[in-house]
């Protein structure tokens, strides 16, 4: 079997597994909807929803049937991207028309932050080098870095910025709310930069990444095959880089769910109208088609990125193909 067919087989098998996971995960989400107490439609819609709208919702979400056939109905509609219409947040609009663009923003924010965290972790790992006696005092403070939730980091960060702004910028007639460090303008990219920075540092993302990459890098540096390469007088950078790709991609995929959760928090803090902000708004207003649609989007993303990571690993590491994925 040549390499390309092997790769294709791995990709196909992974795609099938991903589809299966998607069906399973959507079933869990559906069961959660069905577990609402009392009359399901009453429990999940806002007060004062008209009866005809309730009936339409019940039909769309299959709430008027037994759970299994209801699930099939709902899955069939969802598979075509139809998650019904928003109730409150953008009343009457299809959920995907509201959630789609917001989700793209969130994905960009989370993806860029995660990538930046990875590259900075690589840089940090190279600068710090071997864990030596000299750096032992770092271990304690690092735990505090790992433990700071992003909403704490956000407030500290915005206050730091605020003091800076008050000290240096305010003379220019520049007014901000007490806790918000930057002018709120919808077309400005700055809030996204700040949110990205907080996302990077919050929830221990960077510290955790740094520890992983550092451990991998040290294991590689001390590996026998690297010693052999060095003994033959060849450059080791290429070999180390290639062997780092696999753990790096794995780390990226496994941290994506954490970053997406963090994105929900920072979007709330910085009032960025992405998927997380929309999710919280919809949850507050009990706009449940939007909440469900967004939950599915988040889940699909996690599964898709996991799939992509598997394929990249198989491309870089021939052993994965030999093992049959």
């Amino acid at each position: 079997m040549n390499r390309v067919t092997g790769l294709l087989l791995v990709a196909l098998r992974r795609a099938a597994a991903g589809l299966l996971l998607l069906v399973g995960a959507s079933f869990i989400i559906y069961v959660t909807i069905r577990s609402a107490p009392g009359d399901a439609v009453d429990a999940i819609t806002p007060m004062g929803t008209p009866d005809d709208l309730k009936q339409k919702l019940a039909a769309e979400f299959g709430l008027d049937r037994d759970p299994l056939s209801g699930y099939v109905t709902w899955l069939g509609r969802s598979a075509t991207g139809d998650f019904g219409e928003s109730l409150v947040v953008a009343a009457g609009e299809p959920v995907m028309a509201v959630a789609g663009p917001a989700f793209v923003k969130t994905l960009a924010l989370a993806g860029v932050s995660l990538l930046a965290a990875g590259l900075l972790a690589l840089l940090g790992a190279m600068l710090l080098g071997d864990p030596s006696a000299r750096q032992q005092w770092l271990t304690g403070p690092l735990y505090f870095g790992t433990a700071a939730p992003s909403y704490v980091v956000a407030v500290l960060f915005t206050q730091g910025m605020n003091w800076f702004v008050h000290a240096f910028v305010e003379q220019g007639g520049y007014e901000t709310p007490v806790w918000y460090p930057i002018p709120i303008a919808s077309d400005s990219a700055m809030p996204y930069v700040f949110a990205g920075l907080v996302l990077l540092a919050g929830d221990g993302l960077y510290m955790d990444y740094l520890n992983t990459v550092r451990a991998e890098l040290n294991a590689l540096r001390n590996a026998q095959f690297i010693a052999a390469v060095r003994a033959k007088g060849a450059g080791v950078v290429r070999h180390i880089a290639r062997n780092l790709v696999v753990p790096f991609v794995s780390a990226f995929a496994s941290r994506l769910p954490i970053v997406l959760g963090g994105a929900v928090i920072v979007e709330y803090v910085f009032t960025l109208e992405g998927a997380g902000y929309l999710l919280l708004e919809a949850a507050r207003e009990r706009d449940f088609p939007v909440v469900v649609g967004l939950s599915v989007l988040f889940t699909v993303t996690i599964i898709a990125v996991g799939l992509l990571a598997d394929v990249v690993r198989a491309i870089v590491d021939p052993r994965e193909v030999a093992r049959g994925g």
């Binding site: 299966l20 107490p37 949850a283 449940f288 939950s295």
Partner: peptide, 22 residues
């Protein structure tokens, strides 16, 4: 398989979903 399935749920988002419904 079951473990992998649970692992694909976005933790915070799923908890918010549960909070909305229950």
């Amino acid at each position: 398989g079951v473990l992998q399935l649970l692992d694909t749920l976005p933790r915070l988002v799923f908890i918010i979903l549960v909070c909305t419904i229950l």
